[in-house]
Design a protein around this nucleic acid. Structure first.
Lengths: 216, 216
DNA sequence: CTGATATAAATAATTTTATATCGATATTTT
DNA sequence: AAAATATCGATATAAAATTATTTATATCAG
């Protein structure tokens, strides 16, 4: 079994490779690490190392068999057995995520959404039922849900986080612009838009500064 | 001038500090790096180092003056002078972002959205006008736009990226699940949901494996 | 004024991540 | 069949980031 410990950075790149490989499947039988690296603007050795941690059957002069690699990545990332997940907060962003079909490709099956607004409860968004948040605890326990997507307003996030932890959730994907405090054993992944933004605006400002001269 | 080069990891944390500081402003005059670290589950030295790269006026036994620190972070991150930005693709996700008020806090001013669907063109979402994508080039040049948020379907992303580059955009915030190829000088920040997801599901699976025993 | 204490700042050590180098191997060309 | 070439895999090196340790300093209680 190839269950090596993969670094976090590598782990984050693997789904990116997978997505690309899926897009070229059929077009080509094999692909080299060099070609992959070029497609992403990465170092080829890095790609090889990343792939090596889940596969290890690249052939010199040829590369990796696309289908085989896809299968291995899917296996490693757990895209085969779908994980059931709930979404809490069926507002704009929540709805956007519900209607994003791509999740299933990565083994995520959103089975229900929860909200507290009367006018959305009982409706379906892309086939996914929106339930009253009062049913949250009962539903999670009954369906053994361990992963939740949190898209409520920042003001309600921590309170909802506590409720989720209370009913057995072990991982929370937080889209609310707040830092959540959760006990050890519960992972919180903050999808922090402000962070990405900081990187972009720095680039813009650097460009401007260089443009302006700044000669000695 | 404190214009040191800040590492990317640090840069990504700064907006998080800023957000937290804003939430406690008024409540307290000063705050220590230790307290900040605890709030985020980070190492206190790291917080101090991060803050040191933009500020450097913490006082022993007291910490940092909240208001002063906010001002310095805002200055450094460029939250003062708002950057004009356009959003391309007014679908679910696009609308969610348009209605997310928080961007202005980080100096982002979404001044227009573009789409090609007849039924949304001409409408306003949260006060922001949705224009026809045919007007894209003219608008960007007329308003000197350099930053674009891309929320079109993956299939249209690369093509739209090329158009944006063509009309002077220098930074693209890509939400489409594709890798974009852009010339040097144009930064593309991919908001990659699949990567975050990989981290979460690994945690879930690790938990399950440990739970199951795995004794020798 | 003095000493205890909390905290910042500086420095060092560790860990993680990325890149470069090199030999081995399969494929293609001659 | 032999040589050339592209590529993998492993190892080594370098860079970056995080964490630990130490030192210095400001505040507060007595």
């Amino acid at each position: 079994m190839n269950q090596k410990t993969v670094s976090e950075q590598t782990l984050r790149r693997l789904p990116v490779y997978l997505h690309y490989l899926r897009s070229v499947r059929g077009e080509r039988e094999c692909i080299s690490a060099t070609a992959l690296a070029q497609a992403f603007g990465l170092n080829d050795v890095q790609v090889r190392k990343d792939l090596g941690s889940v596969s290890g059957l690249g052939r010199p002069k040829v590369g990796y068999a696309v289908e085989e690699l896809i299968a291995q990545l899917e296996g490693f990332l757990g895209c085969r057995a779908a994980t059931s997940v709930i979404l809490v907060g069926a507002g704009h962003l929540g709805t956007a995520l519900l209607s994003y079909a791509g999740f299933l490709d990565y083994g995520l099956d959103i089975c229900a959404a929860f909200d507290c607004a009367e006018d959305v409860i009982g409706r379906r968004v892309c086939g996914i039922p929106v339930l009253s948040s009062e049913e949250l605890e009962a539903y999670c326990r009954a369906h053994c849900i361990h992963l939740a997507i949190l898209t409520v307003p920042a003001s309600a996030a921590q309170q909802m986080c506590d409720r989720l932890v209370g009913c057995g959730i072990r991982a929370i994907w937080n889209f609310a612009p707040t830092i959540l405090r959760a006990p050890a054993g519960v992972t919180v992944e903050n999808e922090n838009l402000a962070s990405s933004l900081a990187v972009l605006t720095r680039h813009l400002n650097e460009g401007r500064r260089t443009e302006a001269g700044e000669s000695i």
